[in-house]
């Protein structure tokens, strides 16, 4: 996994609450068996006027001009500003895959849905929860000035607004450690093999019916 340490980038404000995973990446694109290539269909129904199909090139599709990512001033943005309950709905990891593939490194919102929040960390994408008023301020500053950039420092756990206001955020130590170092957590868990085996032995005595092999 790509590490996340410090990031400075253009921010795009998506002023909509309860953005669900069907909006982030509609179901027809979940038929892929790969992890990459979802960026062009990120927010497909908000971004394009027509219904997108898997494997269809997106150049030339009619755009919804008013959608934030279609506005030239937000081209190349890498920080997404969002509203409450971002990422609600399904568990599809295609949602963070699509955000990452598009070029986002971080999403800042007052709250996130649990599964989406969790999935982000597995993909080097940093979800940041700030107070509602802090998010409001970022929306205002980013909308007011073209090219406004936000600085995110994971080590220091701070977000710096375009005008220089610093906000701090919380993140679990373990997730932070994995993200800072780009660590694959399967490898880390497998270092605990002995603990897992010990648990299994104990559990097999208590609840042997959970360990019966199944006939095909």
């Amino acid at each position: 996994m790509r590490p996340f340490t410090k990031h400075t980038g253009l921010a795009a404000p998506l002023d909509l609450a309860n953005v669900d995973t069907d909006m982030i990446i509609p179901k027809q694109f979940l038929k892929s068996i790969k992890r990459t290539g979802f960026g062009k269909n990120l927010f497909d129904e908000l971004r394009y006027q027509d219904e997108g199909q898997p494997d269809q090139p997106c150049e030339g599709r009619p755009l919804r001009e008013e959608f934030v990512l279609n506005q030239p001033r937000y081209a190349g943005s890498s920080v997404l500003l969002a509203r409450q309950n971002f990422g609600c709905g399904s568990s599809r990891e295609h949602a963070p895959w699509a955000l990452d593939d598009y070029g986002f490194r971080s999403v800042i919102a007052p709250s996130f849905a649990d599964i989406f929040y969790n999935n982000c960390f597995k993909n080097g994408l940093l979800p940041i929860v700030l107070e509602s008023e802090e998010v409001d301020q970022l929306f205002a500053e980013v909308s007011a000035k073209k090219g406004a950039q936000i600085v995110i420092d994971l080590e220091a756990q701070t977000v710096t607004s375009p005008s220089g206001t610093e906000f701090s955020f919380l993140v679990d130590n373990f997730r932070k450690h994995c993200l800072l170092n780009g660590l694959d957590d399967i490898g880390l868990t497998l270092q605990q093999e002995d603990s897992i085996r010990r648990y299994e032995e104990k559990r097999m005595n208590e609840a042997p019916w959970l360990f019966l092999s199944r006939e095909h």
Binding site: R35, S90, S91, R92, E93, P96, I115, N118, N119, K122, N123, F174, D185, I186, T189, L190, Q192, I196, E200
Partner: peptide, 17 residues
């Protein structure tokens, strides 16, 4: 529910963080 990275994690380790 879990994401795909966690599906892989459970397949490989029988555990979840």
């Amino acid at each position: 529910g879990i994401g795909t990275s966690e599906v892989e994690h459970v397949l490989a380790t029988q555990c979840l963080v």
